[in-house]
């Protein structure tokens, strides 16, 4: 189990997660667009926001992989299945708290349930389990995170 393996898993996992979410966009399963949500925190220009968002998204993918690695190291075990379980937890956490509650609070262009008539935010809040972006969004998001977690877990275990 190595940090390099976890980081490699984070990179590949983020690639897969992003591709799955993008494919779900095209298949009209969800309006969820994580790079766009992240990028618009820094720019109101849609095109620039997407470019910045992709960079941020991959950084976060690597940071989360390090977090996974820390837990794998603490319990002395890693693998595809364990990673998938972490990914499931990660996906549920993202839908219930991370993106649902925390992102609207810190995102300068996103509305939250507390946004009042004095403001005019540009982005609708995601809602519980991100369902504002389409009723299939929870399934898509969780499946993508399970794939991410599995890859991080698998690569971590492969790395020596």
């Amino acid at each position: 189990m190595t940090v390099a393996g976890a980081l490699a898993g984070g990179l590949i996992g983020t690639l897969v997660l992003t591709s799955l979410m993008r494919a779900a966009n095209e298949l009209k399963l969800t309006r969820m667009d994580l790079p766009f949500l992240l990028g618009t925190a820094l720019s109101g220009n849609r095109a620039r926001a997407k470019a910045v968002g992709y960079a941020l998204h991959f950084c976060f993918g690597l940071v989360f992989a390090l977090g996974y690695y820390a837990v794998f190291a603490a319990i002395g075990s890693a693998g595809w299945g364990l990673g998938a379980a972490f990914g499931l937890l990660h996906g549920v956490f993202a839908g219930t708290a991370l993106v649902n509650v925390l992102l609207p609070v810190v995102h300068p262009r996103m509305g939250s349930p507390m946004t009042g008539a004095g403001d005019a935010p540009l982005l609708e809040p995601p809602g519980f389990m991100l369902r504002n972006y389409g009723v299939q969004t929870p399934l898509v998001a969780i499946a993508a995170h399970v794939a991410y977690g599995s890859i991080v877990g698998g690569f971590s275990s492969l790395g020596g």
Partner: peptide, 29 residues
């Protein structure tokens, strides 16, 4: 600007069809 962003974001799943009406949180229910 906020309204146009909301319109274009919320109609995304139905495109190229349009729903008649949408929930205020963007949900099509």
């Amino acid at each position: 600007r906020a309204y146009f962003w909301w319109l274009m974001h919320t109609t995304q799943l139905d495109a190229p069809r349009l729903g008649v009406l949408y929930g205020l949180d963007g949900r099509r229910r």
